[in-house]
């Protein structure tokens, strides 16, 4: 027996045919590519070429795009990225031309996600930083357990409406719901808004009934700096999605803040 060599077979093979360089951009074809291979390849390409923009096409459900890409790159996604888009993400900007699925921005640390469409459940779950813009509606439990720390403060902007448990356990950050596709009389869909909330702020444009709110938060008056913040994000939203930002500010907002930093302080018998 000769010399024995060890071969590790775990690394997927790179298929560089999927990568094309066009006008200084990188175009990446993800058609039927397994997410692990996509993400490995993506990392390799970014590492080697350090492009400013990379566009990925034919994305259908591949998960974890943007996870562990710790560099300033803009990733354009054409199609429907899979769950946990940008999970744990720290740095990149992702723009989705289509809808995003569940877990978009899960535990995100920094960066930006712009969705030209809707996003699924638990969008922005446990996010600690960065900004997420969703043009249309979002699903359940969106923005739950968002938190903030020092300079890090996540912001989630939703153009449409959200469903139940919006901002549940929220511990920081800013959650904005513009309710753009609703009439003045229509109320937002979400029930149990901000259940267990103990930090951060929720702004909702349009009608929200008292019973839709969790017990741990309360409405407060919009002040000048709130309006300034709304204007800032309305402007950014409009920049992303081609909307008239003044139109967004023409309706009243409800500002929701936690009543206590310790929502469950009285739950226990000490």
């Amino acid at each position: 027996m000769g010399r024995i060599t060890l071969i590790n077979t775990s690394r997927p093979e790179n298929d560089m045919n999927r990568v094309k360089f066009e006008n200084g951009r990188i175009r990446f074809d993800a058609d039927r590519l397994f997410y692990k291979d996509l993400n490995f390849l993506l990392r390799d390409v970014l590492k080697e070429h350090k492009p400013e923009i990379i566009s990925i096409h034919n994305v259908y459900g591949q998960r974890y795009i943007g996870t562990n890409l710790r560099q300033n790159v803009k990733i354009e996604i054409y199609g429907t990225p899979g769950n946990d888009l940008g999970a744990f993400m720290d740095g990149p900007t992702i723009e989705v031309f289509g809808n995003a699925q569940d877990g978009c921005g899960n535990t995100m640390n920094s960066g930006e996600i712009v969705v030209h469409g809707s996003a699924g459940d638990i969008t922005g779950f446990a996010a600690r930083g960065g900004e997420i813009f969703v043009k249309d509606d979002v699903g359940y439990r969106v923005g739950i357990h968002m938190k903030e720390y020092q300079g890090k403060k996540p912001t989630l902007v939703i153009g449409g409406t959200a469903q139940d448990f919006l901002g549940e356990y929220m511990a920081g950050g800013t959650l904005i719901v513009f309710g753009l596709y609703m009439s003045e009389e229509q109320r937002h869909r979400a029930d149990f808004i901000g259940t267990g909330m103990h930090g951060g702020t929720i702004y909702i444009r349009g009608k929200v009934e008292e019973h839709q709110l969790g017990k741990e938060l309360g409405k407060v008056e919009m002040k000048d700096d709130d309006w300034a913040l709304m204007e800032e994000y309305a402007y950014k939203y409009a920049e992303h999605f081609g909307y008239n930002h003044k139109q967004i500010l023409n309706r009243d907002f409800v500002k929701l803040v936690p009543l206590s930093l310790r929502p469950y302080g009285k739950l226990y018998a000490y």
Binding site: D84, D102, G103, N106, I122, F125, A126, R128, R141, I144, H145, K147, E148, Y149, K152, E168, Y169, A171, G172, G196, H198, G199, L261, R262, P263, Y264, G265
Partner: peptide, 17 residues
């Protein structure tokens, strides 16, 4: 923990994802 000082650190019963 990278959370604000003085606020409850709530670990929900399930992982919500």
């Amino acid at each position: 923990r990278m959370i604000p000082e003085g606020t409850d650190a709530i670990s929900p019963a399930p992982q919500h994802d």
